[in-house]
């Protein structure tokens, strides 16, 4: 996995989680700024999905690792849109809890991708 891309994705999901926490604290609903950060994260995840598709052949360590690598890489881009959809529908501060949970999941799954890459390439 491209290490700079992983770092950028960590940073974007951390910013998104922090914003979500701040918005929840101030009892603010989702707005364009949150969507902009989520959008940037989404662009990064789409780039990552392409990188994963190109590099999946290089992953050693058996079919299971390969499949996990591909599955995580291709599932991740669906997280921000799903989270944004739920957050827009929910008109309480809990909407931001969903955004924070989604950002957290993105960070963990991206970490797992990097881990598979480090171990098997």
């Amino acid at each position: 996995m491209l290490f700079p891309l992983t770092v950028a994705l960590y940073a974007a999901s951390a910013v998104l989680a922090a914003m979500a926490g701040w918005y929840a604290w101030r009892d603010r609903l989702i707005d364009d700024r949150v969507l902009l950060v989520a959008g940037l994260l989404e662009v990064g995840l789409l780039v990552q999905a392409v990188v994963v598709l190109v590099s999946v052949g290089d992953v050693g360590g058996g079919g299971a690792e390969k499949a996990t690598y591909a599955a995580y890489g291709l599932t991740l881009p669906f997280v921000p849109p799903a989270v944004a959809f739920l957050a827009i529908k929910e008109k309480t501060r809990w909407a931001m809890g969903v955004v924070a949970a989604g950002a957290f999941a993105v960070a963990i799954m991206t970490g797992r991708l990097q881990q598979i890459w480090d171990l098997h390439v």
Partner: peptide, 14 residues
């Protein structure tokens, strides 16, 4: 599915 429930739904989905 409202309030805290929406967070629960999201975590369950993951």
């Amino acid at each position: 599915r409202s309030g805290p429930g929406v967070v629960l739904v999201a975590v369950y989905a993951v």
